[in-house]
Computed example of a mutant assay.
Amino acid sequence: MSATAGPEDARSAGTNKFGLTEGLVVQELGWDEDADDEVRIQFEDAIDGELVDEAMEAVDVVLLWWRDGDGDLVDGLVDALTDLTDTGYIWLMTPKVGRDGYVDAAELAEGAITAGLALTNGVTIAGDWAANKLVRPKSARR
């Protein structure tokens, strides 16, 4: 490998943004053909495993792909909480501004609050998707 940064280095740097570590169980919801495969690979590389679609046990993280037109965002977020541990969190992926399926930031904030979640921070990722981390408020965690 050359001394310049290649795709593997980019993936490693990107996973730090998501706060993922080896051994975490990540459930993926809302996948469709437009989902960003590079993001999916970053998640799998970071956890050293595959994403699960149906959880057989509690999951540490949910990777939720959401587009305007996918239904009610609050319902989608509440569904994402079903298999999530009390200390787990959701990475909500939505199309970036100007992309087909874009979800307005005000709708994200309102949806998070209504679902009993806190919208903590966004992460810049390449491609057509924006990433927002949602957590249970500290008072709701056990």
Rank of each mutant, 00 (worst) to 15 (best):
M1A: 14
M1G: 14
S2L: 12
A3E: 05
T4A: 13
T4L: 10
G6C: 10
P7H: 13
A10K: 07
A10S: 06
A10L: 15
S12T: 14
T15N: 02
F18H: 08
F18V: 04
G19N: 05
G19V: 06
L20S: 10
L20A: 01
T21A: 12
T21G: 07
V25S: 10
Q27Y: 09
Q27A: 02
E28K: 15
L29F: 01
L29I: 12
G30K: 03
W31V: 09
W31N: 04
D32M: 02
A35L: 03
D36S: 15
D36T: 10
D36R: 08
D37C: 05
E38F: 14
V39A: 03
R40T: 08
I41Q: 05
Q42N: 08
Q42H: 10
A46E: 04
I47E: 02
E50A: 12
E50S: 12
D53C: 02
D53Q: 13
E54A: 07
E54H: 15
E54C: 05
A55D: 07
A55N: 06
A55Y: 11
A55P: 00
E57N: 05
A58K: 15
V61W: 12
V61A: 04
V62H: 03
L63N: 09
L63F: 06
W65L: 01
W66V: 12
W66G: 01
W66H: 13
G69R: 06
G69H: 03
G69F: 04
D70Q: 07
L73A: 13
V74E: 09
D75C: 08
G76Q: 13
L77N: 08
L77V: 05
V78Y: 00
V78K: 11
V78R: 09
D79I: 13
A80H: 12
A80S: 14
L81C: 11
L81Q: 15
T82A: 02
D83R: 15
L84T: 04
T85M: 06
D86M: 10
T87L: 05
G88F: 11
G88E: 13
Y89D: 01
Y89S: 05
I90E: 03
I90W: 04
W91G: 00
W91R: 04
M93C: 03
M93F: 11
T94S: 02
T94Y: 02
P95Y: 02
P95G: 01
V97H: 13
V97C: 00
G98M: 03
R99D: 10
D100K: 09
D100W: 10
G101I: 12
G101Y: 08
Y102Q: 03
Y102D: 06
V103E: 01
V103G: 00
D104S: 09
D104N: 14
A105I: 14
A106K: 12
E107T: 15
A109K: 15
E110V: 06
A112F: 08
A112D: 05
T114E: 11
A115T: 02
G116E: 09
L117F: 11
A118V: 08
T120G: 02
T120V: 14
N121K: 13
N121P: 04
G122W: 12
V123W: 05
T124R: 09
I125Q: 07
G127M: 05
W129P: 11
A130F: 06
A130L: 04
A130D: 11
A130G: 04
A131R: 10
A131N: 08
N132Y: 11
L134I: 14
L134N: 02
L134E: 03
R136T: 08
R136G: 01
P137Y: 05
K138C: 02
